[in-house]
Design a protein around this nucleic acid. Sequence first.
RNA 1: CGGGGCGUAGCGCAGCCCGGUUAGCGCGCCUGCUUCGGGAGCAGGAAGUCGGAGGUUCAAAUCCUCUCGCCCCGACCA
Length: 574
Amino acid sequence: MRWSKLYLPTYKESPSDAEIPSHKLMIRAGAIKKLTSGVYTFLPVGFRVLRKIEAIVREEMDAIGSQEILMPILHPAELYEESGRLQNFGPELFKLNDRKQRMFALGPTHEEVVTDLARAEMRSYRQLPQTLYQILTKFRDEIRPRFGVMRAREFIMKDAYSFHDSDESLEVTYQDMAGAYHRILDRCGLDHMMVEADAGVIGGDVNHEFIVLTEAGESEIFTCSCGYTANSERAESLGQPLSSNESVAEGSPVRVETPGQKTIDEVSAFLEADPSQLVKTLLYRSEGQIVAALIPGDRSLNEVKLMKLLGDPQVQTLGDQEILDVTGAPVGFSGPVGLPKSTRIIADKLLESYEGMIVGANENDAHLRGVKMGRDFVPTETASISEAKAGDTCPRCAKYELVTQRGVELGHIFKLGKKYSRSMNATYLDRDGKDHKFIMGCYGFGVSRAVAAAVEANHDERGIVWPRSITPFHAIVLPINVSDDHTIKVAESIYAELSEQGLDVLFDDRDLRAGFRFKDADLIGVPLRITLGERSLRENKIEIYYRGEDRSELVDPGNVAGLIKAYYDEKPAA
RNA sequence: CGGGGCGUAGCGCAGCCCGGUUAGCGCGCCUGCUUCGGGAGCAGGAAGUCGGAGGUUCAAAUCCUCUCGCCCCGACCA
């Protein structure tokens, strides 16, 4: 490919709406171009990377016996009514009507469609197990698209679905998939981790996420040296020893004036108490009922856990006015003592070890000290609803402390069980001619997100450094002086030689200053640059520059192809 | 959904508060000359419905109303 013919717009400046390195660099390197919020065009460079990742995914899927199909993007809404996800998926589901006002959805994933396919086409246990996959564009009306293709509304995903007649069979495929995902990420040169996760709107019991470790990742994961790994939505914890313990007030709680002290920080400073001794009372509405969630003041609520506990994905926080109506006090002074009787009070498990606690008084500018759970208020139930924190005791081994890392979720695999086959009545006949619901699994991998994650994990201040397995070009041939006949002649022959070997080579034939072109080459992240300068050519030497190592060497023209071949035959550095 | 910010040339921005020349600047783009191994210099040039609609005014990028879009923060402050 000759650069002069390639559509590759590079920019010196980042667009103002880009925040994280991968987004900035992908725009600057001409890999993607935004059409509208959360919707991107892949330009030639970005598309090449996407294609390479797709190819790796296909190879690994095919290798475990998964078969590629292509399902529609446009789905009739009735399927989602059947599965119940028309409600549960909520506003994230893109809905639209046809001219007859029939409702459709743009596929966010394909559980319904594939289950519909299976119930029509898979009739016998003899056909099982069966695994199907596809790579295509998905739509989710994200509440807040951001970070370029990292969190987009339209994105490319590989999704696979498996059908089984036993849990054992599902387990085999599940493990095959986990293995394939590890290999895919290894081959893409991405450092990653498999963690326990929450199943969200997909459903099912067992599920794991594949997280690529990067600073700017949106996922927080917890790990323990005992081997426990989980994401923040899922992670349990045994908390930490309390540094202090509020003493229980004699008889009944003590009311203290806390004028204008609303936040945990303010109240704890004002009362000279440790934030852990305060208890947050978070008010929610779930199916018409008011829910008060109590958690330690130094922790955050895990809304996913709360939703699961309530069995209601639509849990809503109360507004300021509603809080005033329910508690009789403005935001900042809510507490569990004296709430309306109909309130469902859920206390975090960690509160069980508390003696006394400090809570809002449900009265403006006042808190209660020395409150004892069980005496001053009785929770409807206790459950683990707070988020784990770094330093908490591991829930698995109860010995070591949890450590947090950030990352990007690229893969998510689920044992769905019969969730969809039951709601959609998808059955097969067993050996005895009896009906059974399919046991299913589903396995997603964010292909377009993987491009961004690869950049996020592989860049420096000058630009992208593509992992060698997914680089848009294996090498860039850069003749310094494009009007020097000898330079061009040698460059052309090297370009031809490499191309013949099946390598993707970019030939920078532009009549521009060397510095400018070096900057461009660094920016777009081609791992190897073959530089031909008049001076070194006079001594019959050509420079190979290793982008990732910021190192160059002078070699004989005859050795260039061999060295490059060798570079790409090495195992990709993980 | 709540709060805030921003829409001015392909990109990044100034001008707006306090209305009044042909609406500027940097990058990029085009032409020429010089330069030519780390985002060159000089000279000349093209390019803008000032997001859209309505209003106020002799006069609107600037003031008012509505609207669309984009971005950030929040939605665990309690």
